[in-house]
Design a protein around this nucleic acid. Sequence first.
DNA 1: CTACCGATTGACT
DNA 2: GTCAATCGGTAGA
Length: 207
Amino acid sequence: MTVVKNHQLTPLPVSFYDRDAVRVAQELLGKLLVRQSPGGRTVGRIVETEAYLAQGDPACHATRGMTRKNASMFGPPGRAYVYAIHARWCFNVVVQPRQVASAVLIRAVEPLDGVPLMQQRRGPAKPADLTRGPARLCEAFDIDRRLDGWQLGAGRRLWIAEGHPTWLSPNHIGCSPRIGVTSAAERHLRFYVRGNPHVSGPKRWRL
DNA sequence: CTACCGATTGACT
DNA sequence: GTCAATCGGTAGA
């Protein structure tokens, strides 16, 4: 059963990503993450993001220079940056400025389409935990290192679409420190849809 | 090659 | 709330 209409799935323009990380992180809330794979299509509404900044942010993977792992962060905006942490994958979107490296981590989505496929990939996970958390979302959407550096929307594999523009009103966006980061812990660079049950993290950071 | 780390998760008290 | 398994990536010998 399909909830999302095809005309809502047009990829966002590259210019959307060519702005500062905080702005993109906030405006990504409510957008649709779309994954088309041989097994079928999955769609989720983005409900939680985190910004990682090019300047003065020791938690950003790029602060100590370019390596094979983080190379796609240094490329043009609008590409995927997929990296491994604790034996799992996390999905980021590369944003402005180019050559300096900053990104937005997609931490949680609300499942809309392709739920059976997500369940199949996630195995025995509770329905509520299908896509709640950056690595869970990647497993449900079959995102791994093969998609690192993938230009979102170039070819129907992985992209982000506008969805329903009025779904979210700005005063329903909350912010908090980033989850799990051990440096720059005081900065409020995590953004989420207030009260949405698919947001991860401690309860006080979901209200 | 080995040693260590981590933007996590799932199991448990 | 606590805690340990997890393994790709990095740094260094």
